[in-house]
Simulated scan of single mutants.
Amino acid sequence: MGYAVLHMEKTSGTDAAMSAHIERTIKPKNADESRTHLNRELITFPDGVENRTQAIQHRLDTAGLTRKIGNNQVRAIRVLLTGTHEDMERITSEGRLDEWCNDNLKYLTDTFGRENIVSAILHMDEQTPHIHATLVPIVKGERKRKKKEEQVKKRYRKKPTDIARLCADEIMTRAKLKSYQDTYAQAMSGYGLQRGIDGSEAKHITTRQYYRDLVQQTEQLRTDIGQLRDRKETVQEELRRAKKEVQT
Rank of each mutant, 00 (worst) to 15 (best):
104 N>F: 04
104 N>M: 06
104 N>G: 10
105 L>P: 03
106 K>N: 13
106 K>I: 02
106 K>P: 01
107 Y>A: 05
107 Y>K: 08
108 L>D: 11
108 L>T: 10
109 T>F: 14
109 T>L: 03
109 T>P: 01
110 D>Y: 08
111 T>F: 09
112 F>C: 09
112 F>L: 11
113 G>T: 01
114 R>F: 01
115 E>F: 01
115 E>K: 10
116 N>L: 14
116 N>F: 06
117 I>L: 08
119 S>E: 01
121 I>N: 10
121 I>V: 15
122 L>D: 00
123 H>E: 11
123 H>W: 02
124 M>P: 01
125 D>G: 06
125 D>C: 05
126 E>C: 08
126 E>T: 14
126 E>S: 09
127 Q>F: 02
127 Q>H: 07
127 Q>K: 12
128 T>Y: 07
129 P>H: 02
129 P>A: 03
130 H>E: 06
131 I>S: 04
133 A>Q: 03
133 A>K: 00
135 L>V: 09
135 L>H: 12
137 P>G: 09
138 I>E: 00
139 V>S: 05
139 V>M: 04
139 V>C: 05
140 K>G: 03
140 K>S: 10
142 E>Q: 15
143 R>D: 10
143 R>H: 14
143 R>P: 11
144 K>E: 15
144 K>M: 13
144 K>A: 14
144 K>S: 15
144 K>W: 12
146 K>V: 09
147 K>S: 02
147 K>A: 09
148 K>T: 11
148 K>P: 00
149 E>V: 10
149 E>K: 15
150 E>V: 08
150 E>W: 13
150 E>Y: 12
150 E>M: 14
151 Q>M: 13
152 V>Q: 11
152 V>M: 11
153 K>M: 11
154 K>D: 08
155 R>Q: 12
156 Y>D: 09
158 K>R: 15
159 K>P: 00
